[in-house]
Computed example of a mutant assay.
Amino acid sequence: MLNFFDAHLGERFAAFSPSHTAALAILAAAVVLMAVFRYRLCKQGVRLALAAVLLMCEAALNVWYVTQHIWSVRNTLPLELCSITLLLSVVMLVTRNYMLYEIVYFAGIAGALQALLTPNLGYAYPHFRFFHFFIAHAGIVLAALYMTLVEGYRPSFKSILRVMLFLNVLAVLVWGVDRWAGANYMFLAGKPETASVLDWFGPYPYYLLVEELLALVMFLLLYAPFAGRASYRAKGESEADTTAMTRR
Rank of each mutant, 00 (worst) to 15 (best):
F5R: 00
D6T: 00
A7G: 08
A15T: 12
F16N: 05
S19L: 01
A22C: 09
A23L: 02
L24S: 03
V31F: 02
V32M: 07
F37Y: 08
F37P: 00
L41P: 11
C42H: 14
V46S: 00
L55F: 15
C57V: 12
E58M: 12
N75K: 01
L77I: 10
V91H: 01
M92V: 10
R96S: 11
I103M: 09
V104C: 07
Y105D: 01
A107I: 10
Q114W: 03
Q114L: 15
L116E: 03
L116Q: 04
L121W: 04
Y123C: 08
A124Y: 02
F128G: 11
F131T: 10
H132W: 14
F134R: 00
H137L: 06
M147Q: 15
E151S: 14
I160C: 03
F166V: 13
L167F: 01
L170W: 01
L173F: 12
W175F: 14
W175P: 03
R179T: 15
A181G: 08
N184D: 14
K191L: 06
A195S: 13
A195I: 12
A195K: 11
V197T: 05
F201S: 01
Y204T: 02
Y206K: 09
Y207I: 10
L208E: 14
F219M: 14
F219Q: 04
F219D: 00
L222P: 01
A224L: 15
A224Y: 07
P225S: 05
K235S: 13
